Amino acid sequence: MASLAWQEQNEEEDKLISSLPKERGWSFPYVYLFEHFWCPSPLIRERNIFQKHFQAKQSDVLVTSFPKSGTTWLKALTFAIVNHKNFSKENHPLLTSNPHQLVPPLYTFRGNIHDQILQLSYMPEPRLFGTHIPFPSLPRSILESHCRIIYICRNPFDTFISSWAFFNKIKVEHLPTLTKEEAFEMFCNGVIEFGPWWSHILGYWNESVARPNTVLFLKYEDLKEDVNFQVKRVAEFLGCPFTEEEESNGVIESIAKLCSFEEMKDMEVNKSGTINFEIKRFENKLFFRKAETGDWVNHFSPSMVEKLSKIIEEKFSGSGLSFKMHY
């Protein structure tokens, strides 16, 4: 009976996906317009399974982002902050595991769904998950549980360059490589996995304004400028603030150093390891490129700057959200 129900659900998903508008994706042959964002078909299936079966807990922590906005860094920091009383520098899990393993993707169902739901219920609390899914499409149980959500945003210029470099490396083999010009047109039209990027950013931004105790909105550039201050801010938001003794003993600085791009990139696990990330296996080193702010100036033409600037002005006007460009 269970297998029959599973087959019927798959048929329903096939019918739904075939009815959706589609475009060529950056790393997938097609992305589909699902609940107002562009998504690969496997993730539509997994999201719908989670909507029906996943039960969030109030103690859960969700690390969210648009792709290539500082996700790996924020996952490392969040794990280290939540567990800052549990591990020393010498035996820290980040020394031997990629941040995406320690803060796994929210949508990870494979095989027997009932067994995996059971496994999730046995995870130690607080459970840490990551996702690129836009805020309105998160499972209802997450929205109703008031679990804490941390979102990281990066200026769209650097986000585009980082996305173009990354998606060309992880694309399905037979897909032609996107030129910068092709990718830029798609980006400006919002056609990118989990896009439109402006809707993604504004969804979490507006929720952080409405519910600041539930959604914390961070900027990648702020982390770069003063990581110690942001680490302290995240710890307070998550309800695990540092004591005065911990601060005086340099715990915040220690976390910042452990999770820094230079330290993480140089770890053996991130130089040679691999991870089964959502729907395909990636080399860990792909998550560590440059981590710079302002690299976009080396890639943008004046006409590209003008076009993207106009889109930012149009989409974010009146929102109260601005971006640090770092020329």
Rank of each mutant, 00 (worst) to 15 (best):
G203Q: 02
G239K: 02
R233F: 10
A210D: 14
I192S: 10
T214W: 12
E207G: 06
K224P: 09
K219L: 10
T243H: 04
E244P: 05
W205F: 13
S199M: 13
F237C: 01
L202E: 05
G203I: 03
D226G: 11
N206Y: 14
F242Q: 02
D226N: 14
W198D: 04
G239Q: 08
A235W: 03
D222S: 14
P196H: 04
L223E: 03
A235E: 00
H200M: 04
E246Q: 13
V251R: 10
R233V: 09
V234N: 00
C240M: 05
L202Q: 10
D226L: 12
E236N: 13
F229H: 15
G195W: 01
S199W: 14
S208N: 08
S208K: 04
V251I: 14
C240P: 10
S199G: 13
L238N: 01
C240F: 06
I201G: 00
E247H: 10
I201P: 01
D226I: 10
V191S: 02
D226S: 11
W198S: 03
E236V: 13
G195M: 00
N213V: 06
W197K: 03
H200S: 02
E221Q: 08
V234W: 00
I192M: 13
L202W: 05
G239C: 07
K232R: 15
P212Y: 11
T243D: 07
W198Q: 02
W205I: 05
